[in-house]
């Protein structure tokens, strides 16, 4: 009896989020699985009848996995990650250690470094598109001062992805920097004092105290960065639209293009489930690996 009373009490409180979950999460997930098994074009009525008619089983999945495009799309993401993660980690470590110093005027930098994080990707992409403009942009102008002829960046097959990495590092380093700062602040000052007594220098302190004690924060940053890397989208969509010649095609960009430009809904849905599996597996691997190299203070 008491249980029933509690349920009745809880119901009005749970109702909005439960409704939201069913309509905007649970139902879409189920529908997405079904659509991924069909070659539905997004225009025919969506009901059991049409679903049955355009059922193709696992056809979309095998078609994607056998296409060369999928593997090059995957490679673009891996390529992005190889440059993006080390760069953004190093930059944010610099930012965190600068902001961690108790010096006059550091507060100004704290605000400054965070402005790109606040900027929307649409604005940031437009700014970078213009910064990277081959003839009229400032990057190539700056390069010309030291006698280098800059590449065509976003329209050059080789340089388009590095350009996107550059813009992404610029936008994200403040975020990870402030995140790592909170990790730095949590390190006990006593360790540094003790090691100084033992005669350890700054460099030694960094590698023997700071870095090991910062691994949990860094681990978290890497997971976030990896998951975000696979969901790379607005900057690609606005800066290159996947070009030149498909050199910057990435998974979400493909999902968007197949789903809402070519109306190959089934194909796009299957793509999104492959994306899910990749992210899921990555998270699991990370969770397993972290035991090996993340140092948790006990």
């Amino acid at each position: 009896m008491k249980k029933r009373k509690l349920t009745i009490q809880a119901l009005p409180f749970m109702l909005p989020s439960m409704l939201g979950m069913i309509i905007f999460s649970f139902l879409p997930i189920v529908i997405s699985i079904v659509i991924s098994l069909t070659d539905w074009n997004g225009l025919d009525k969506l009901n059991a009848q049409t679903m049955k008619e355009c059922m193709v089983g696992l056809g979309n999945y095998s078609e994607i996995l056998r296409s060369t495009e999928f593997w090059s799309v995957l490679w673009h993401t891996v390529y992005y990650i190889i440059f993006y993660i080390p760069l953004v980690l190093v930059m944010s470590l610099f930012i965190a250690s600068i902001l961690n110093k108790n010096m006059k005027g550091i507060g100004v930098f704290r605000v400054l470094y965070y402005i790109p994080v606040l900027t929307s990707w649409v604005a940031a992409s437009l700014i970078w598109k213009w910064v990277l403009s081959p003839q009229y942009g400032i990057i190539n102008q700056l390069l010309s001062y030291i006698g280098i002829t800059g590449p065509n960046w976003l329209t050059d097959k080789v340089w388009a992805m590095p350009a996107i990495v550059l813009a992404s590092v610029w936008k994200d380093m403040g975020f990870y920097g402030l995140f790592l700062l909170s990790g730095l602040k949590a390190i006990d000052v006593g360790y540094y004092e003790a090691s100084r007594v033992d005669g350890a220098g700054k460099v030694r302190q960094f590698f023997s105290i700071t870095l090991p004690l910062l691994t949990p924060s860094m681990f978290f940053c890497i997971i976030m960065a990896l998951i975000n890397a696979f969901q790379l989208f607005p900057q690609v969509q606005i800066m290159t639209e996947g070009g030149p010649n498909g050199a910057t095609q990435v998974m979400v960009e493909r999902i968007y293009t197949y789903g809402f430009k070519y109306f190959k809904m089934g194909y796009a849905a299957a793509y999104s489930w492959i994306l899910f599996v990749i992210i899921f597996v990555l998270t699991l691997i990370q969770m397993k690996l972290q035991k090996r190299w993340v140092y948790y203070e006990s």
Binding site: I31, I227, M251, I255, G259, A269, S272, L275, F276, F280
Partner: peptide
């Protein structure tokens, strides 16, 4: 765990 892209189309 489900990325938002999965629910995009439905």
């Amino acid at each position: 765990m489900i990325p938002t892209q999965v629910t995009l189309i439905p």
